[in-house]
Amino acid sequence: MKFKVLLILLLVYHGAGSVKAAELVVAVAANFTVTLEKLAPEFERQSGHSVTIVSGATGRHYAQIVNGAPYDVFLAADADVTARLVEEGRALADSRAVYAIGRLALWSRQDSYVDPEGKVLTDGDFRRLSIANPRLAPYGRAAVEVLTALGQYDRLFARLVQGENIAQTYQFVDSGNAELGLVAYSQVLENASGGSYWLVPEQLHTPLVQELVLLQDSSAAREFAEFMRQPSSLTLIAASGYGNLPSTATINP
């Protein structure tokens, strides 16, 4: 996959000719990495720029940006970190934009283990429920909110295991070590790993508003931000397991 991106990137680079091709480094939240890998080649084709993707936990990206990581664009997993970066003057003030609304799914690798209403959370005799670390990952905070809203948090507390980010949370379930996990819906769709899932209703947690922010003031970075908001990109993002963006991108940090 990465090799393919690289190959396309090389072709584009050589084909671009007189166009001033820039190399963009994009830091991205772990839940959106696969979707970005699908979007990047299209952006490279349209713009002639090349994209390098750095995937990881949003908290870690923040710490690295503060310490001078050379990223041009940051696709965060929430709207808090981006607001903070702007406040601290590390990101362009007018560059905050919502690019995706995250959806949470209760997923098991076993077929029909998870029922369509997610009742397994209340009745199931599972040993382990995998969630992302709520102190680091917005998806982990949302998972705790869901469990609290369902009145199950205290009961299930002792059965929770925490992944460092949403990718590890998924992997705990995928390796069979946890029967259930509250993971990103995009992961369940992307990996097509079968099993059964319940798409958690959005009203059970604070919306997972994912914002991007520009860290460098370059035309290539601005082109990328525009590309992320163009209809074809939004369609692909929605098809990858994200909720619809509000038409007026209102943000309540």
Partner: peptide
Amino acid sequence: VLMIGGNIPGQTQVLSIAIYDHVESL
């Protein structure tokens, strides 16, 4: 520990993981 621990306080959350958590949550 990061791979097989699951970061459970009181059971598998060791010092190095606690430090990592602190750094990442600033």
